[in-house]
Design a protein around this nucleic acid. Structure first.
Lengths: 106, 106
DNA sequence: ATACTATTTGGCTGTTTGGCAAAATACCCT
DNA sequence: AGGGTATTTTGCCAAACAGCCAAATAGTAT
């Protein structure tokens, strides 16, 4: 793999890596309904707020979400709605896996 | 986050995690052109064959590729073509980031 | 300025990942 | 069976990650 290709693949991989954690998948899912403040997300997730903040920072640096400080609170929102289409494909993969497992039983 | 939601998010995250490595992104890209044997992929990647084999195992267990042993060789192929659409979204995110960085300069 | 609240950052620990090399496995051929 | 090739598995080490706590920062209100 030449250097240029490697950098390209690495950039893409960064986005996927950002989505590669249950909490971060959950955050994206929640944000698909509209923007949320960190405190609200933290409640729903049920982890330490510092942990949630770090997850958000990862999503942000991958370009998946953007933040907006208003008063004391910071609101995060989805920056690229196409991520939801991505979920559609991932769900298809998961469904296919399920079918494979079932066909082993039959 | 309740237990059921967590399992759901974790399944999705597994697929993303599988795509979260430059080498594995490259493999998916290559396989989009058609099936390939491990040896051929290894050549293109330029890493130890055992390393490539592990990457393929990760993609396979995530349901992204499937394998087919024919004689001595094992051929891998994309199982869900929609992954390429996913790349389209990721590329959009990357392009957006680039624009943001440029807008800082202006 | 002080007190208070929301969020981020730094530091620590245990866990996971990625890579190579060596050994094991699987298949073919004679 | 024995030799050769393609691939996977195992063992090991260094680097990266995830989580919590405590400390730092930023904004608001008195």
């Amino acid at each position: 793999m030449d250097d240029k290709t490697h950098r390209w693949c690495a950039s893409r991989a960064t986005v996927f890596k950002a989505l590669g954690h249950p909490t971060r998948v959950f955050i994206v899912q929640e944000l698909s309904k509209g923007e949320e403040c960190v405190c609200h997300l933290t409640e729903k997730i049920g982890a330490d707020i510092s942990t949630v903040s770090k997850h958000l920072a990862i999503l942000k640096s991958a370009g998946i979400v953007s933040d907006d400080k208003r008063g004391l609170q910071v609101f995060y929102k989805l920056r690229m709605p196409c991520v939801l289409g991505v979920f559609g494909c991932v769900d298809k993969i998961m469904a296919e896996d399920l079918r494979d497992r079932e066909s082993l039983i039959r």
